[in-house]
């Protein structure tokens, strides 16, 4: 990888000379693959979710994509992105339904398990997710096997709340800086194309984009 990076930089530098520096600095800096720390979240004001809803999403996110050798979804603050998406991206009708379903889910867990999702231990949380997974499948909104050809990212309209949360959490994590650049391989300017390489050559990891 070092050699191709060098080539890209050479090309960019040559272009910068040719174009009188017109190649943007963002492109040059992208070659260096710098990584930002997760944003400080202490003073963030919530835009759509309430505290209970935020905690529920954070801990479901922590179960789906936990910290391993890399940080997981909760640690990179995916729940705050979900707050943004609920406030900005969803329609007002979708947001209303989504927030309502979150509250119903939160209350249902408290009724059935005697405490909030966040207060459950890992085993208790797993039992809840297993049950939600079965409900999602029963609603015809998932597959246990390979996932379907659309790459399963359909996010039009309302769906089962767990399917919606999964889509938002997974999207949020793998489009975060940590998810995209540390957990997966990230190469903003590949420079060349090889149609068939051994997967081992890239450490067995998928490209994030």
């Amino acid at each position: 990888m070092t050699k191709s990076t060098l080539n890209r930089r050479e090309i960019l530098e040559r272009m910068a000379v040719v174009t009188g520096g017109a190649v943007s600095l963002t492109i040059l800096s992208a070659c260096d693959g710098g990584v930002k720390a997760p944003k400080n979240t202490e003073n963030l004001n919530l835009k759509a979710l309430n505290k209970e809803q935020l905690d529920l999403i954070a801990d479901i996110a922590d179960m789906i994509i936990p910290d391993t050798e890399t940080l997981g979804a909760k640690s990179v603050n995916v729940h705050f992105l979900v707050d943004e998406l609920a406030a900005n991206w969803m329609t007002s009708d979708e947001r209303k339904g989504f927030l309502n379903d979150l509250t119903v889910l939160d209350e249902r867990i408290k009724t059935e398990r005697g405490k909030s999702f966040s207060s459950l231990d890992n085993q208790g949380r797993g039992t809840v997710l297993d049950q939600l997974g079965q409900e999602m499948l029963a609603a015809g909104e998932g597959t246990e096997g390979l996932g379907d050809i659309t790459n399963s990212d359909d996010n039009t309209g309302r769906k089962h709340i767990y399917r919606e949360l999964r889509e938002l959490i997974i999207f949020g994590y793998y489009t975060s800086e940590v998810g995209a650049t540390e957990e997966l391989n990230y190469d903003p300017i590949p420079g060349g194309y090889s149609g068939c390489i051994p997967l081992a050559d890239v450490g067995g990891k998928a490209w994030s984009i």
């Binding site: 391993t68 797993g126 499948l137 996932g147 793998y174 067995g204 998928a206």
Partner: peptide, 26 residues
Amino acid sequence: RLSWKRGADQTGYGADFKKNLQQPGA
């Protein structure tokens, strides 16, 4: 190959699930 987007429709979770999505799909 399928990307991480395949994860939304699956029901898995946890470290094994994360490991699986780290690899390209079918």
